[in-house]
Design a protein around this nucleic acid. Structure first.
Lengths: 194, 194
DNA sequence: TCAAGTAAACTCACTAGGTAGTATACATGG
DNA sequence: CCATGTATACTACCTAGTGAGTTTACTTGA
């Protein structure tokens, strides 16, 4: 069967790809650089991934569940009404954005960089990730008895993507705080009419 | 002085850079490709621009005023209260996004692609452009007698950036329509408390 | 028990083409 | 004549991807 190191090697490549793709961008990072960071040769990398595009897709897939889980945990841990719980998500995102290595939302940045390849599998992964986030929010709002849960989830998701973009543009976490305040108002408004 | 064709040549290069950088992305486009599209040699391009980075910056600078002017025109032409005028901007953006060549906001995409170079002059141009948009909105809201004009302009700008990101991700103009509806609600809310 | 076989996992050296940027020379209008 | 503008041809290096061969771990037959 497979060597015991096989899965471990694939993970090492993915970890290196994560750091480099997120830190430097997709097209700015060469396959050679990833192989070197992973401590193996390019030929070995191509044994585990059939192309650079394949590796880009795998990079985003590896971030999908962890990111969604973090949002859900922040929301669940927060006290108070859904409006406040929503706002907490934005506050946590703002906190994360203070780390020096923070470089925006990896999904949005990858989609933006691959805008000239709409059919790229990684773009589809990014779109699905954002859809999942919105759907999860909509379900949370529906459980809280909000009538227009879908519309509200859509608006909050738009504010979140706007916050990611603005924080990256201006390098200022305040934008996520302000987006959170706007989201709070919209949730309160929806609650009032429910 | 310069040959009469000099300014024209610079413009030809800038036009080619515009189409290629916006259509394909920054790092995906080579200086050779821009020179070829402009119908001249790379050496001539380097006579007018000192580096690729310089050309990237010039590309964004050339889009700054036209974009802001379009937003202002859409807003001024629209009928009704500021809430409706705000919503119209989003509707116009959604219309534009239906063009096959639409590839998102050139400023946001450039900033996202150059996220690993925070000091890049083009990133600064992108940040200034977004600040100008927000400031223009804040002034329009203040003129309309809204108390929290700045907060409101910030929220609407966040929704706009979110709309750009989501439309690019999902290739669906509906996201701008929904962002416009949310913006409408926030403006109405601010008007009510003024 | 242990040598031979096998397939997975891996490396070295390479191809063919693209990259930003430049040294040098030629043209052309004032 | 001479400054501005343009082109040819080049450097030095990086790019994704591959052909061919080697090492490793495990299986299997005697």
């Amino acid at each position: 069967m497979a060597k015991p190191s096989s899965l471990e090697t694939r993970d090492r490549i993915l970890t290196a790809a994560n750091k480099l793709f997120y830190g430097e961008g997709i097209r700015a990072v060469s396959v050679d650089a990833i192989a070197e960071k992973a401590g193996l040769t390019k030929r070995t990398l191509y044994y585990h991934f059939k192309s650079k595009d394949d590796l880009i897709e795998a990079y985003l897939i590896s971030r999908d569940q962890p990111n969604l889980a973090a949002f859900a945990q922040w929301f669940d841990e927060a006290e108070g009404p859904v409006s406040a719980k929503t706002q907490v998500i934005f506050q946590r995102v703002a906190e994360n954005a203070r780390h020096p290595k923070w470089k925006g939302c990896g999904f949005l940045r990858t989609v933006a960089e691959l805008a000239n390849m709409p059919g790229h599998p990684a773009v589809a992964v990014g779109a699905r990730h954002k859809k999942k986030f919105e759907l999860w929010l909509a379900e949370a709002y529906a459980k809280a008895g909000i009538q227009q849960a879908q519309d509200l989830a859509r608006a909050v998701t738009l504010l979140m993507d706007g916050a990611f973009s603005a924080m990256l543009t201006h390098r200022d976490p305040q934008y996520a705080e302000d987006a959170g305040a706007a989201a709070y108002r919209l949730v309160e408004l929806a609650c009032a009419s429910s």
